[in-house]
């Protein structure tokens, strides 16, 4: 049986999960888009002078 005020508890947890999920998704997609643009730039032969293996994994 659901406790009193269950709707408020569920809305708080579900709403928070949704917003945090959206934040994680936005950060991941933004990172992917920037990496893709950098890769495209490097494919065109434009590189940093000091670039070796420093873009990290």
């Amino acid at each position: 049986m659901l406790p009193d005020h269950a709707a408020f508890i569920i809305a708080a947890f579900a709403g928070s999960a949704l917003v945090i999920g959206a934040l994680i998704g936005w950060i991941l997609l933004d990172g992917r888009a920037v990496r893709r643009s950098l890769d495209a730039m490097e494919a065109r032969g434009v590189r940093r002078r000091s670039d070796r293996t420093e873009r990290g994994s």
Binding site: I24, I27, G31, S37, M41, V46
Partner: peptide, 29 residues
């Protein structure tokens, strides 16, 4: 979670600045 997300966002921001400087160099060339 905040630490993880901040680290991820910082990595993206560093790469975005590198991309911006590469774009400026490509445009100048």
């Amino acid at each position: 979670l905040m630490l993880t997300l901040h680290m991820m966002a910082m990595r993206t921001e560093i790469l975005r600045r590198r991309l911006r400087s590469l774009e400026a160099r490509a445009a100048a060339e």
